[in-house]
Design a protein around this nucleic acid. Structure first.
Lengths: 114, 114
DNA sequence: GACTAATATGCATATACATGCATATATATA
DNA sequence: TATATATATGCATGTATATGCATATTAGTC
């Protein structure tokens, strides 16, 4: 279920943990330094992230290496697809793909009219 | 700030409201039917969605028509871009755009290995 | 076995927040 | 003005959950 994907990402500490993992697997102690909360909290968040499919674990002796799994992100992407029309409506699909490609190549669309 | 975009979407009632708006503007009473909660709750959720930039309002007499704004969805898309590598790593960027195009044309990728 | 290091968990607490009810506000209509 | 309709808000309540502390657990080292 994609149901609680948003719920999981709603917590800022959890997002920081996810971000800490975006460049590959890390052990818990490593994550604690970046999470800004107590080790016990990180451990609990990692449990939640594991239960919701965001991370997988690779035990190695006393350490546990956590890494991101693609599924929930893909789910998020699928959910979002429903709303892509909101900002790509005027483009046909091929054009939209090209537009997206341009955007990803140069991330120069930070400041949009708010 | 994209900070509380996830927080906003974490609530299922709010997601139902967003979904109810995905085909264009609706007045509150219309939304209430689909939200599964009391009108007062819908009203409050709409306030939150407005504060976080998800919706805009168009008053018309005693009614208020709400509709989706693209910005938060775009923010979500930008956030997600950081993690696209998780499931598109093996493709170069042009290939990724094509792949994405294929996926959007035929949404036939529901059942993936879990 | 004693000791240390890495990670997880029970407990207590504080806080956030979603909800319904009753009511307020605003607009239309008679 | 009186009344009805549409939407918003104050209040009270229940529930979820993030956090730290202390401790348990597991594994490595002497």
């Amino acid at each position: 279920m994609q149901i609680d994907t948003f719920q999981t990402l709603a917590d800022p500490s959890r997002r920081r943990i996810v971000e800490a993992l975006c460049n590959g697997e890390r052990q818990v102690g490593d994550i604690v330094e970046r999470a800004g909360i107590h080790q016990s909290g990180v451990s609990r968040h990692l449990r939640i992230l594991h239960e919701t499919g965001f991370v997988s674990v690779r035990p190695e002796g006393q350490r546990r290496f956590y890494s991101l799994r693609p599924e929930p992100f893909r789910e998020l992407d699928d959910w979002l697809a429903k709303y892509r029309g909101l900002w790509e409506a005027r483009l046909d699909r091929f054009g939209a793909a090209l537009e997206k490609q341009r955007k990803h190549r140069r991330p120069a669309h930070k400041d949009q009219r708010k």
